[in-house]
Amino acid sequence: PDEFRDPLMDTLMTDPVRLPSGTIMDRSIILRHLLNSPTDPFNRQTLTESMLEPVPELKEQIQAWMREKQN
């Protein structure tokens, strides 16, 4: 489902985090971005790792969907 895909890389998220802007991304992708630029890739506001907020409900939904697909 589209809501499980990272908006920057269009890959399935495994550890979704919410940026201060409200955008949800995969943690590994935003951390890689932050190594090059300490900004939100969508609005260029300053962004640090400590500002990332886990989204455990979405992570659980993704994991359940993945388990379902394996069966």
Results as ranks from 00 to 15, higher is better:
residue 7 P to W: 02
residue 25 M to L: 08
residue 20 P to G: 02
residue 20 P to A: 00
residue 15 D to M: 00
residue 38 P to L: 07
residue 50 S to Q: 13
residue 57 E to N: 05
residue 45 Q to S: 12
residue 15 D to P: 02
residue 6 D to C: 01
residue 29 I to W: 05
residue 19 L to I: 00
residue 64 A to E: 09
residue 49 E to K: 10
residue 45 Q to W: 07
residue 12 L to P: 13
residue 54 P to R: 04
residue 44 R to T: 09
residue 49 E to W: 06
residue 8 L to G: 05
residue 7 P to I: 04
residue 18 R to S: 06
residue 24 I to P: 00
residue 9 M to L: 11
residue 43 N to V: 06
residue 51 M to W: 10
residue 3 E to I: 15
residue 57 E to Y: 11
residue 29 I to F: 03
residue 63 Q to S: 14
residue 30 I to N: 03
residue 35 L to T: 08
residue 45 Q to A: 13
residue 28 S to E: 14
residue 38 P to R: 11
residue 14 T to K: 09
residue 7 P to K: 05
residue 47 L to M: 08
residue 30 I to E: 05
residue 64 A to Y: 08
residue 50 S to N: 14
residue 11 T to M: 06
residue 3 E to V: 08
residue 55 V to K: 04
residue 50 S to T: 13
residue 68 E to H: 09
residue 66 M to C: 15
residue 59 K to R: 04
residue 41 P to I: 07
residue 71 N to S: 13
residue 1 P to T: 06
residue 2 D to Q: 15
residue 46 T to C: 11
residue 31 L to M: 08
residue 3 E to C: 06
residue 43 N to R: 07
residue 5 R to S: 06
residue 57 E to K: 11
residue 41 P to A: 04
residue 23 T to N: 15
residue 6 D to W: 01
residue 46 T to L: 14
residue 47 L to P: 06
residue 27 R to N: 06
residue 41 P to Q: 07
residue 1 P to W: 01
residue 29 I to L: 06
residue 29 I to V: 15
residue 56 P to T: 06
residue 32 R to Q: 14
residue 1 P to V: 01
residue 63 Q to L: 12
residue 32 R to D: 13
residue 13 M to T: 04
residue 55 V to Y: 05
residue 55 V to E: 08
residue 42 F to I: 12
residue 70 Q to W: 05
residue 5 R to G: 06
residue 35 L to E: 15
residue 11 T to C: 10
residue 21 S to L: 03
residue 64 A to V: 12
residue 32 R to N: 12
residue 66 M to P: 03
residue 22 G to W: 01
residue 29 I to P: 01
residue 11 T to L: 05
residue 45 Q to L: 07
residue 6 D to E: 04
residue 56 P to V: 08
residue 56 P to H: 10
residue 46 T to S: 12
residue 25 M to G: 03
residue 24 I to E: 09
residue 46 T to H: 15
residue 4 F to S: 03
residue 17 V to L: 00
residue 71 N to W: 15
residue 6 D to R: 00
residue 9 M to F: 06
residue 10 D to A: 10
residue 29 I to D: 04
residue 65 W to M: 08
residue 18 R to Q: 13
residue 30 I to Y: 06
residue 17 V to G: 00
residue 54 P to L: 00
residue 30 I to Q: 03
residue 57 E to T: 08
residue 40 D to S: 00
residue 27 R to C: 02
residue 46 T to W: 15
residue 40 D to V: 06
residue 52 L to F: 03
residue 23 T to W: 11
residue 49 E to Q: 11
residue 52 L to W: 01
residue 32 R to Y: 03
residue 21 S to W: 00
residue 13 M to S: 03
residue 50 S to W: 08
residue 66 M to G: 12
residue 56 P to S: 10
residue 68 E to S: 13
residue 64 A to L: 10
residue 20 P to L: 02
residue 21 S to N: 10
residue 36 N to F: 12
residue 69 K to A: 09
residue 69 K to C: 13
residue 25 M to Q: 01
residue 30 I to W: 00
residue 64 A to D: 14
residue 10 D to Y: 02
residue 14 T to L: 12
residue 3 E to A: 10
residue 12 L to S: 12
residue 69 K to I: 15
residue 54 P to K: 00
residue 6 D to A: 10
residue 54 P to T: 03
residue 37 S to I: 11
residue 58 L to H: 00
residue 37 S to W: 02
residue 42 F to V: 06
residue 5 R to Q: 07
residue 10 D to M: 09
residue 35 L to A: 15
residue 50 S to D: 12
residue 35 L to C: 14
residue 17 V to C: 08
residue 15 D to G: 01
residue 43 N to T: 15
residue 32 R to A: 13
residue 49 E to V: 12
residue 50 S to M: 11
residue 14 T to Q: 14
residue 66 M to V: 14
residue 46 T to A: 13
residue 23 T to S: 09
residue 9 M to H: 09
residue 15 D to F: 01
residue 12 L to W: 02
residue 58 L to P: 00
residue 55 V to D: 01
residue 12 L to H: 04
residue 58 L to K: 10
residue 4 F to W: 08
residue 65 W to P: 10
residue 51 M to R: 07
